[in-house]
Design a protein around this nucleic acid. Sequence first.
DNA 1: AATTACTGCAACCGCTGGAAG
DNA 2: GCTTCCAGCGGTTGCAGTAAT
Length: 293
Amino acid sequence: MDVYERGFISGTPQSEEEMDVRKGPWTEEEDSVLKAYVNIHGEGRWNSVARLSGLRRTGKSCRLRWLNYLRPEVRRGNISLEEQLLILELHSRWGNRWSKIAQHLPGRTDNEIKNYWRTRVQKQAKQLKCDVNSKQFRDAMRYVWIPRLIERIRASSKSPSGQPTSTSNTTYTDNISNMTTSQITYANATGSVQVDPSLLPELSGTSSDSVDTQVSSVSDLTDCYNPQSASDYPNNLQKGSGLCQENVAGTWGRCVEFQATEEQSNGWLGGGDSMESVWNEENIWFLQQQLYD
DNA sequence: AATTACTGCAACCGCTGGAAG
DNA sequence: GCTTCCAGCGGTTGCAGTAAT
């Protein structure tokens, strides 16, 4: 699907190079040209790269292709549970600062993280029928999703049959499993989040992907929150305490108990830095160390 | 097997801020 | 101080692959 744009201003070609600008997916040949050029001349000055390499692409396009795909350090593949956790946490602190978040996930690009957020997290919000920036969703993520992710990581590290997909993950999950309750529930400073692993469905050993670090539906919020049935849920969250129950096959079976102070319930994005107090620098540092050391 | 709907991702677009002239 | 150029960022779009019907 070759699409070319004519680079005209007032009917006059701007330059020889801009007469034919290629758009759309990159070919293997283009990739190797760009790779070879950057390997020789280095990154930066992308307009020059585009011009001098002979690629009929814009500098922007070259930069994007290099940063998101061709760079040797780019990690491809599924976002691990640990990375999900870090993304959720960092997004809670910085909002849509994708590039900043990406800096803390080596090998992951801002584009990839942004896509993850849009396709996974926003989907959850949609399924919960609430805005991704709403208090309900933020609380649900804070008190349900993140604890569940942590529990999953713990569970996968403890699973006898389970083998984490990478050595770094092994280290990470081993340490997660050794985290204290207060570390895992990480809200104790201002309230409490009690998560009983036995109550969480994916921790019962029935989950086929319990050790896989792929993005999976098990980390979905909707697993434990049925908006039709759990009408009290948002109210309870807003009150700062209550039970988050999940409706599985029409029965109320599992719950995550939580208590939240008013301080905790204050804005997550732009409305305050309550998560900052919950997820302090030490925790972030810890996560990063475990992930990438 | 064919069609439709959905999902995930690569790439583009527009805007912003900083550096250089 | 103003203008221009460029890199970078976040939002959006379009398409390919997959799942559902």
